[in-house]
Each structure stands twice: as structure tokens, then as C-alpha cells.
Design a protein around this nucleic acid. Structure first.
Lengths: 329, 329
DNA sequence: TTGAAAGCGCTACCAT
DNA sequence: ATGGTAGCGCTTTCAA
């Protein structure tokens, strides 16, 4: 591996000059620059980012912490972050916290020890103390926060919307699935839904799901039909949960959406691939990632931030697990 | 951030002694060690990995390069790698190459510039020259290779198995979906299937899918039913593709599995959540990730490797997009 | 058993 | 416009 010394020697200049040429800082004569570039070419020289980072105490690396890489919502988020970071010359290192505080802390250390220049965290932990005095800016993604900059979708509105749409379409005995307690975003959408349901003229009951994983989704689905067989409308905590409900309903020969309506949450790519395609509340995952990246970059560049908590709107995606609305006039 | 100097000062010893204590190298008196540990505690000292890495030219970081983080197969792979690496004290940095050679190369540079100690690559590019003379070991995952160590599932057997099972269950006019040309693993399973089909007594035709993405899967599904309406059995290139076929078939009112049988490939978590649940050839993604991690660690530790190309078996998962087999005697 | 000092590759200050 | 050099935090000889 060629070093800056090798380049300097080959170009017949000092390392200081090479460094200046490399970073476009200070004066470098045009001819000298050409000499240097030639040497760089010939040696296939790439600056050692570790040495750079050691001196500057900042790398070009951004940490991205995901709670569960297996939930399709998060890769989508990650892509939004990645694409934006790429454009701005930052590189992403992704950590998967696995809904596990110990792993989360571990990754935060790794990020810190490797001099990341900033961190985007999409984990669910309430333990915000991990993020204090890290020495680099943090943006929370898919999570609200007062103290830290954050990007999230409007969960209250989303929950309300889900309830409105399913009621409007005629469900009378609704089961509302409540996501994990510790997940603030899940609680928001739950709260939005329950508010709306309380103000409407329908019966409903509430079931709590332990987590947003495949396994728990399947368990919850089974339980739902055993406990509340008269349900004619389900508002799920996320699309994975909705997919499991849909699956179980079809298995039991329940006709969708005639006997049972289902509304999911997230609009993960899989949702349109289900049959019938899933009606859901769409969170703009990719855009959320993009916004978080832009926000972090702005902070890194010390731009003044007009809005450090960005809330993105959600939309109802009217597919085929809900009936066509009757009134339209 | 406390440095090793601070610790040394506080403990009243030299930095060299602290370093020795830190790394369990050379002699350190028990009393001195206690003093040092106390200082480390009080200062909440964490060694700077960047400085370490600069000197040793090796970090504790492992690069993992994924072709497409949105395809659920890869997060599964990643989890296998991650869990094993975690156990051994290595940290993972994940890059998403997005099926894009430029991004792939870019990540390889990032890994190199950040002194990763090893790399696991699950990308599809045939461009193996990127991986020459990197200065650290590389293990290919979900990809065969002669020159480099690799871990993959038996695609030939998988394709053959898919064909056998669907023929055994009575499909007579089969459409075989062929994955992207540049994807060696896809070609293997295709080859396995077509070999078997040629030796059997059924008609079949072949359709090529552009890529293994959600969008292309949907397009291919539409096309299939337009072009080959008489198809009574589909062997898909992967589960995403199979899900799209299933979706389109149900949309057109085709009864599954009575009129049409479908076999997928991968067994991603979503497959059992579809309705009817998808019959598929299972690749042990998590285990593949684990094996790749173990192999890389062995190479890093200079252990002698008895087997540098590890092939894992695939299995047929008999769910409900295939009929029950008739003969069983 | 311990410490002084060199050096990993780079940047930035200060001379020239 | 260019170069010498200190120093980022750590590990590792080598000497004591």
C-alpha cells in the first residue's frame, strides 16, 4: 500500500505539498499538482482514512443503527439514508441492534471508537442516556425526541386514519392490535386509533402484541381469532402483523374483505404482493431515511437548522383488504 | 475522551505499561495492574480503535457486502454472520452494493481504507478482480468461487429438487423462471431444474427475469400468464418471484395448487406468511452466514482450513402451493 | 517488571 | 508556493 511519502518522493515534492493537493487546501502550483496527480495514478495511491481520522478525530463514516434488519421496513429506511449519504461523500456503516440494549450500546461504542462523524439511530430503546455526550451529532429516525433532532412519521394521524377508514367502510366489531409498549411510535398510532374509535359508534377490543417480529405476528393472529371470533375489522400494528392476520383469516375460510377488513401499517414492499393486496397506512420510509440523512449532514456542516424535528405525513393506501367506500357524494 | 496518557498519569506508570496491561502482553505486576484498572474505571477509558488500527494496520472490523438489503434473503444471511462475529469480538460494518459494481467497488475501498481485518461478500458481480490483492482475506457468501474461500448452498441440487417435486405432483406444462444471467447461483438452480425437466416427460418453457427485485417480479408475473396461459406449474427463481406469481394467479382466479403449482426458492420468512403458504426450496441462509463467518475467522487466525469451499444442502419445504404427492408406497 | 522513544500515515502550523 | 516537523493515540522494540 502506497503512502503519502511514496507519492511525495515520486513527485519530487514534500508530503506537505501532497497533502495540500489532496485536500485542496493552501497553495499548490498547477504544474506541481500535475506531477502529484501523476504519481498518485501510477502508485494507485489511496489516502489512509485511518491516519486521517486519527489526526482529525473525525472520519467520513456515518453510523446507522437499526433495531431489526429483518423487518422489511428498516432496509427501506436504510436505503433512503444510504443514497443521500452516498451523494455527499459519506460512507455508511450499519449496525443491527436486534432490539437488544446491550448490542445497541456495543454498536454505539464501535461507532465512537471508529470516529464516526455522526449517527442515525432507529432503535426503540427508551434509554436515551446512551446518546449523551457522544462527541458527534445524533439524529433519531422513526422515533420522536425533544432533546435530539429526529425524523418520524405522524403516528397519531396514522392511527386515526386507520380507524376512520375502517369504520367508514362498515366494520362494527373491531379488534385493535397494540404494538409493544416500549415502542413510542407504535403507541402513537395506537393512541390515534383508539381516540378515533372512542368517538365512533362501533364496538372494539384491544390485543397487545409482544413484538414486531414474524414469530409473534403468527402467534397473535391465531390468538385473535380464538379470542374474538366475531371481529369484522382488524387494525394491525404493522404490515407484518396484518399479513399474519390475513393469512390466518384465509386459512379459516374467512372472506376478505367481505367478512373481515384489515388495515396494516408501514406499507412495506411485500404488502402489495399479498393476496388480496393489503390496505395499509403508508409511512414514507425511504423519504424518512433521506430526511434524516439531510438533517444530519446539515448539522455536521453547522448549517442553522430551522426544523430539528421533522414529521412526515402518512397516507392511506386503499388496496383490497378493505371494502370500497359506500358513500361518495 | 480519556487517552492512554491520562490513564498512565493517573495510575502513576508509563503508557507502555498501560498498553501491556490492556493487551495482556508482556509482564505487568499484579499491583500495577490493579492500579491501572482503577484508573481505567475512574476515567471511563476506552482505547481509541483508530490509533490502534493505524499502528497495527488491522482493526477489529469485518466488512459485509450485501447485493440488495431489500431482498429479505440477505438480512437473514447478515444475521448469521453478525451473531457469529459478535461472539468472537469482531464488529460488522455492512455495505449495500445495490447490484451496482461502482457502489461495490466503493465499499471495498471504504473497507480497505478503514483497515477491516476481513471481508465477506455476497454480491453477484462476476468482476472478481476487485477482490485481488486487497491485503485482507475475503470469503464469498452465496456465491461459488475457486480462487477464494466461499460458502453457498447447492444450487444444482436445489433446482433439480424443485423440478422433481413439481413433476412428481403432476404438473405437465411447466414454466421455468430463469434468474439474471450474471447471477451464478441463479444459473445453477436453473441448470439443475432444466436438466431434470429434460429427463422427464413434461412440456416446459423458459422465461427470463431481469432481476430479483420486487418491481421486476411483478412485471414477470403478468407476462407469464399472458404468454403462457396454459402453464400448470411454475418453478420460480426465488421466493419474491414466486410470491408475485402467486399473487397474479389468485388475482386471475386461478386455483392454487389445483390448477397451478408454484415452487419458490430461498424460503424467506415471508413465504410461510403468504396464503396459501409457499412451497419452496429452502436455503439455510442463517447457517450460511454463520459458516461464512466461521470460515473467515479461521482464516484470520491462520488456522489450517480443511475445506475452503463449503456447500450447504437445500431442502424442499412442502407447503401449500404444491399438491400432496399421490404415490407413497 | 518497567519506561523511553520510535513510528504507523496523515494534517496543519510555521518558516522560508 | 513549498517544506520541515510536531503530534493525533496507540503498540512495540530495546534498554534499564
Amino acid at each position: 500500500m502506497a503512502t503519502i511519502r511514496d507519492v511525495a518522493k515520486k513527485a519530487g515534492v514534500s508530503v506537505a505539498t501532497v497533502s495540500r493537493a489532496l485536500n485542496d487546501k493552501g497553495y499548490v502550483h498547477e504544474d506541481t499538482r500535475k506531477l502529484i496527480n501523476k504519481a498518485i495514478q501510477e502508485l494507485n495511491y489511496k489516502p489512509n482514512e485511518v491516519a486521517r481520522s486519527l489526526y482529525k478525530k473525525k472520519s467520513r463514516l456515518i453510523g446507522l443503527l437499526l433495531p431489526d434488519i429483518r423487518n422489511p421496513f428498516f432496509p427501506e429506511l436504510a436505503r433512503g439514508v444510504e443514497d443521500t449519504m452516498q451523494e455527499h461523500g459519506f460512507r455508511l456503516i450499519i449496525g443491527n441492534a436486534d432490539e437488544n440494549p446491550a448490542k445497541e450500546l456495543d454498536y454505539i461504542h464501535t461507532f465512537k471508537q471508529n470516529n464516526v462523524i455522526g449517527l442515525i439511530s432507529a432503535t426503540n430503546q427508551t434509554e436515551t442516556s446512551y446518546y449523551e455526550s457522544l462527541g458527534f451529532p445524533v439524529v433519531f429516525l422513526d422515533r420522536t425526541s425533544r432533546q435530539h433532532p429526529s425524523v418520524y412519521a405522524d403516528g397519531l394521524a396514522g392511527g386515526k386514519m386507520a380507524a376512520q377508514e375502517i369504520v367508514k367502510r362498515g366494520s362494527k366489531r373491531i379488534t385493535l392490535l397494540k404494538g409493544p409498549m416500549e415502542l413510542k411510535t407504535a403507541q402513537d398510532r395506537f393512541k390515534g386509533a383508539i381516540d378515533e374509535l372512542c368517538h365512533s359508534n362501533v364496538n372494539f377490543n384491544v390485543m397487545t402484541t409482544a413484538s414486531f417480529t414474524f414469530d409473534d405476528a403468527e402467534k397473535t393472529a391465531q390468538e385473535l381469532f380464538d379470542k374474538f371470533p366475531e371481529t369484522d375489522g382488524v387494525i394491525a400494528g404493522n404490515d407484518l402483523g396484518a399479513a399474519a392476520i390475513l393469512h390466518e383469516a384465509l386459512r379459516r375460510g374467512i372472506s376478505i374483505p367481505d367478512e373481515l377488513q384489515i388495515i396494516g401499517y408501514d406499507d412495506i414492499p411485500l404488502s402489495s404482493l399479498l393476496f388480496p393486496p393489503l390496505s395499509t397506512i403508508r409511512q414514507p420510509a425511504y423519504d424518512m431515511g433521506k430526511e434524516a440523512a439531510k438533517l444530519l449532514i446539515a448539522i455536521i456542516n453547522n448549517e442553522l437548522i430551522e426544523q430539528k424535528n421533522i414529521q412526515l405525513p402518512v397516507t392511506f393506501i386503499d388496496r383490497q383488504t378493505t371494502r370500497k367506500v359506500e358513500d361518495n357524494g
